[in-house]
């Protein structure tokens, strides 16, 4: 029974993913087709003068640019379905390989930032919500609202100025000390370079999660069952412990997984500031140097990433809330 439910759930989710990726494909293709950017010019860049019109036409033909739009789309879709995302012009490597290696570098940073922002955001939100109206709540809200309106890249810049330039306790850039080959990087060097970007990334997530957790806890504290718990003589902190925590966990987890989308976007900016060679930095490279295959690959990958987060959230619901059954309403 349980296994059947799980299979139905997986089938539904896969079907929806297929539909979503199809939509993203149509959207991306239409957008890029109407784009004024000439992919050939973009590829060749400054050397355009040295290349004859014939050669340009040859390149265009090899890329299938002379075909009508719908046939190019079907052709492109066929390639995608076979898992062929094309070759990155910037890195001169298959797009899938670039994404795989870059994402590996980003993943650790994303994971640390995700955990940090989730735990700290939850803690701050619980404290602020339980002490609604108290000066501690005001302080936490001020902090969270200020962070929420701070530009991500500026926060990263500040951290860099404070910890790397002034205190010199963090490296100023990159994923490894200069001149060290990637296979020779020790675990500590690795962590040393990872930590500041991860903290910068987490700071942005904290605000959102803290504010939502606070609101949810306030809703719970105004519920009938908390009124009854108070009538039984339960203290505020025990109400938070026995009822608050249990009842905000579900929205908190939803939010935590939904924050993956924001986190991915944030990593683009943070990696840019720290010159950290992850997927976010590759996104900027792809856009700045007109690497269409890589950019499209990253768009697909980010959609998959966000979707995976949402699916994980769906899977966690029945574990936390006995009223929710998998695949049901």
């Amino acid at each position: 029974m349980q296994i059947r439910l799980l299979l139905v759930f997986a089938a539904q989710k896969l079907l929806r993913l297929g539909r979503l990726l199809m939509a993203v494909a149509v959207f991306t293709f239409v957008l890029l087709s109407f784009s004024p950017i000439d992919p050939v010019k973009a590829y060749i860049g400054a050397d355009m003068m040295q290349i004859s019109a014939d050669q340009q036409a040859l390149i265009a033909e090899r890329w299938g640019l002379d075909q009508p739009m719908w046939s190019r789309f079907l052709d492109w879709l066929g390639q995608l379905l076979q898992g062929n995302l094309g070759t990155s012009l910037v890195f001169n490597q298959p797009v899938s390989e670039v994404i795989a290696s870059r994402f590996q570098a980003s993943l650790q940073m994303l994971a640390i930032a995700w955990l940090l922002s989730g735990l700290l955001g939850l803690a701050l939100g619980l404290i602020a919500g339980a002490l609604e109206g108290h000066w501690i709540d005001r302080l936490i809200r001020l902090y969270a609202y200020t962070l929420a309106s701070s530009p991500t890249f500026w926060v990263a810049l500040l951290l860099l100025i404070v910890f790397a330039v002034s205190f010199k306790i963090a490296p100023i850039c990159c994923a490894a000390p200069p001149g060290v080959l990637s296979q020779n990087v020790t675990f500590w060097q690795h962590l040393h370079h990872l930590l500041l970007p991860a903290v910068a990334l987490s700071i942005i997530g904290i605000a959102n999660i803290a504010l939502h957790t606070r609101q949810k806890l306030i809703d719970v504290l105004h519920s009938d069952y908390v009124l009854f718990a108070r009538a039984q003589g339960e203290s505020l902190w025990n109400i938070v412990r026995y009822h608050g925590f249990r009842n905000i966990l579900l929205p908190a987890i939803t939010l935590q997984f939904a924050s993956l989308s924001e986190l991915f976007g944030g990593s683009v900016l943070v990696e840019q500031v720290f010159a950290y060679p992850g997927l976010g930095e590759a996104t900027v490279q792809a856009a700045l140097r007109s690497d269409i295959p890589l950019l499209v690959g990253i768009v697909f990958f980010s959609a998959l990433f966000v979707y995976t987060g949402n699916t994980l959230a769906d899977l966690s619901y029945p574990i936390i809330d006995p009223r929710i059954r998998l695949g049901g309403q």
Partner: peptide, 8 residues
Amino acid sequence: FFSLPHLV
């Protein structure tokens, strides 16, 4: 629109 990170 919601299925893609905003910045991407």
